[in-house]
Write a protein that binds this DNA or RNA. Structure first.
Lengths: 216, 216
DNA sequence: CCGAATCCGGCATGATACTG
DNA sequence: CAGTATCATGCCGGATTCGG
């Protein structure tokens, strides 16, 4: 069966032929954090259903955007991860997420929230123009979840890993980060109330804040 | 009727709630060139059908991404154009198109091609890092169609308008540009064969070529 | 428990015909 | 030219079931 295609001699049309179907881009978004198991993706994409997830994974694998990797024993589980071509989509996804952030208010009780989404949200807040002064590796802990933030030139990469010897280590929780993201809680208040703690190179903090559009 | 939504507290999910349905991003792509009539969009998006086009236009208007404008007499036609919020999507669309360009070979006879798509394709080839030396306004003529290319810092804007006093004026046709885009025809050969002519500041040409990833 | 196949109701899509 | 109305088709979402 010939897959449905826009059939246009255009880069965008080709990209959307591969990635434009429902759930595909959100699936890739979750993989930006690093390799994920089927169950991880299922939990991170409420509503997708197992059949559709299977389909999308196959499509994206065929498109060369993700790979299926079987981890060696004793882990012996299979994970999905971005290929180099898939990783190139990071700035595009971040750009689109950045655009969407402006239309995201306070969360409604219908909306799904997770530490992963908040970590990715931080990635989308990133301002390349303010980034030069903040190059380095940072650790972020949201509840029990650990993330590693790499800032290098005008680029950012947030992944779900621990970081060795980060310049700054940030510890906070979901609700605090939601407040900061939606503007109902200032960074200063969060620091003052001990809801967000910072350890490491204190002098890097102002630059970090401005990189994420936050005032101290 | 509650519209179908991903219901996630995430900028990308919100963006895709608004723009992620079939045809929406391609429709915006066509509006990047400037205001378009219903018929223009219908012709530029083969396969969409009038009902779906109407739906998409309404959705995007509700989302605040486009506006419906009734031109004053004697033109007295209605056109659709991007709002400022919609215009902000240009770099995102260009980024995605750039990613897709790598997967675009020579055109098949199934694929729709038009001067508009080729002008947009040129926009997607743009390399911001090489752009500093090529700031300015350029005129591009593909057959009977005139485009204006604005390069400013790391940004490019291609629109379907004539340009006054461009630095360089380029005249070519569809098949020549297809050849150059797909790599089967070198810029030098096209120039030599008179299939592509350049007038204006000749010294700006090498910079221009490198901005679009072409060798002279 | 993970990953995937199947069935099915409902909605989105796409083509055509039709109207102001 | 700018849409509306209609209808066949196929995709999506949910539940269930099955193999490893």
């Amino acid at each position: 069966m010939a897959k449905r295609s826009y059939n246009q001699y255009c880069g965008l049309a080709v990209a959307l032929d591969l990635l434009g179907e429902r759930w595909s881009l959100l699936l890739l978004r979750n993989l930006l954090l690093g390799p994920q198991r089927f169950k991880d993706l299922l939990d991170g994409l409420p509503g997708i259903g197992t059949g559709l997830l299977t389909d999308r994974l196959k499509q994206l694998e065929t498109a060369g955007v993700i790979t299926r990797v079987t981890l060696p024993p004793p882990a012996a589980s299979t994970v999905y991860q971005l290929t180099a071509d898939g990783e190139e989509l990071r700035p595009v996804l971040v750009g689109l997420a950045h655009w969407g952030l402006a239309r995201l208010g306070e969360p409604t009780d219908q909306q799904f929230i997770s530490p992963d989404l908040l970590a990715l949200g931080l990635q989308a807040r990133f301002d390349p123009d303010a980034a030069r002064a903040a190059n380095g590796v940072y650790a972020l802990h949201i509840g029990e979840h650990a993330y590693r933030v790499d800032i290098d030139g005008g680029n950012i990469r947030v992944r779900a890993t621990t970081s060795e010897s980060p310049r700054v280590s940030i510890v906070t929780d979901t609700s605090t980060l939601v407040g900061i993201n939606s503007g109902t809680l200032s960074l200063a208040d969060a620091l003052g109330a001990g809801k967000l703690t910072v350890t490491g190179e204190a002098e890097a903090v102002p630059a970090l804040a401005s990189v994420f559009g936050l005032s101290l």
